[in-house]
Amino acid sequence: MTARFAVGDRVRVDDRTPPGHIRTPWYIRGKSGVVADMVGAFADPEDSARGGDGLPERPLYRVRFRQTVAWPDYAGDGRDTVDIEIFEHWLEPESG
């Protein structure tokens, strides 16, 4: 499996609204963050949820977002972050 992104890369989550079983939370679509870890490749849940075999496996990243990016009106410390597992086919290079 070839991973498209490396730890430290800036990425943007696709702002898509496809039907079906989606594991990319609504609140983070369209937001930009940094790849914090690459945790392996796993069956694609969107396919696996609808009777498919989920193959090919998709690289899965932990992407770190500033809370002030996730929530423009965030009330806490500007350093606060949220880490989310996101499959590669939901990510694009930031400024790419």
Partner: peptide, 18 residues
């Protein structure tokens, strides 16, 4: 959003930030 892509509403299970 790409042309022709279906716009699906937010799932009622997708609670983050509500």
């Amino acid at each position: 959003m790409a042309d022709g892509e279906e716009k699906t509403p937010r799932g009622y299970h997708d609670l983050g930030g509500l």
